[in-house]
Write a protein that binds this DNA or RNA. Structure first.
Lengths: 213, 213
DNA sequence: TGTCAACTGTCAGTCGCTGACTCTAGCCTC
DNA sequence: GAGGCTAGAGTCAGCGACTGACAGTTGACA
């Protein structure tokens, strides 16, 4: 009927079950705890078979990080689209803050933003998930370092600056997350403000343009 | 009979079983891979029941990190015993290098040093273990930051310097480990040399004594 | 020497996760 | 619009990590 034929009914159904599983999983994780939640409980809440859960998610952990994955991918895309004239730090900063702004549209379509925020806190306070979170962070930083190196036209293999800059940036982001998680204001505005403030401290060090000397 | 009555027969037997389990576990982990090794295979190699394994180790993972735990505890002890006049960086450096020297006596009593070295590489190259390794690292850094703060007589809650110094130090140690793991020389001398060299780069920045201004 | 307690073994069961097979229902073609 | 194709979901059986409960063995110690 319409000019653009979106995904078919089958595809939409699939997406709906996935979203339902994700919502149910995160809701259970954040209320009764990750370790205390069984996959059986999740699938029971959505009324599908356990096998279906494992067809959508590689494991319980993947469900816990599904939203993080989405947000980070968005951040990476935002970083790639940053104007070429921006220095590394300005680009990183712009991409993060832009991501937070876009959080409404991209997250809310799947789960309530408030649930996503609680999920972040749960990850930070669950040992097994914190471990995975840290590993994912350094893997992501490696990817981001590659993007920065490309932007600046330097060689990642010989020039340590991209990795150093990204590591410093990532370190600030980790502290930011912790600080926010420990506080009371669980809003997007809150974490946005903390991020901005923390990055301002780091700014002067990294703001200078490597290509101009 | 002797003046000093060491641990009784029961205790010695227990320790022997634990050591045997550890050796068998690490040997299997490093040869056929961590994920590919089952607890049943480990206990079969030592000829004890599976239940016994789980009485000695909280889980498969704990066995993989048992030696790291030992080395790190030794490092922490060495750090506490460092002369009070040393600055933070000198104390950290001395404690690490001292730990490497003492590796012979403390490790070899349980497993061959070479096996311990291979274990380290296995941890770095096994995703699930790398994740745990990173979490353990930041937890350990928190503890070490506390010791440094105490040594220097500063307040950890208000003064960021202990955490910053330890984070930098820990970062260098992580890079050191990776660098060593990627190389060919799997000896203690090798990692000691790399450690020393890398720390020398960091040195000038942290070497100044905070108490003198 | 006999009692106590620690260490271990056995057994049954939970939970995360996977492979193999079957069935159902969108999709696509004729 | 009927019928074949196939993606997605269900069922079943099974592995591996881990735990609780109970029972046997053997050092420790009075």
């Amino acid at each position: 009927m319409q000019g653009v034929t979106g995904p078919g009914l089958r595809e939409r159904k699939k997406q709906r079950t996935r979203d339902a599983l994700l919502r149910a999983a995160l809701e259970l994780f954040t209320t009764k705890g990750y370790e205390e939640t069984t996959v059986d409980e999740i699938v029971e809440a959505v009324d599908v078979s356990q096998r279906t859960f494992f067809r959508h998610f590689a494991g319980k952990q993947e469900a816990a990080f599904a939203m993080q994955e989405m947000v980070e991918e968005r951040f990476v895309r935002a970083l790639r689209e940053r104007p070429a004239h921006e220095g590394p730090f300005a680009a990183l900063r712009g991409a993060v803050l832009g991501s937070w702004d876009a959080v409404g549209e991209s997250i809310e379509a799947v789960v309530p933003v408030e649930l996503h925020m609680r999920t972040y806190q749960m990850i930070e306070s669950t040992p097994s998930l914190l471990a995975v979170h840290l590993r994912r962070s350094i893997e992501r930083e490696e990817q981001v370092a590659g993007i920065i190196a490309e932007r600046e036209g330097v060689d990642l293999a010989t020039d340590p600056r991209p990795r150093v800059a990204v590591a410093a940036f990532g370190g600030v982001m980790r502290v930011t997350g912790r600080q926010w998680g420990a506080g009371k204001d669980i809003s997007v505005d809150s974490i946005r403000a903390i991020t901005e403030s923390y990055l301002d401290h780091l700014g002067p060090t990294l703001a200078d343009d490597w290509r101009e000397r």
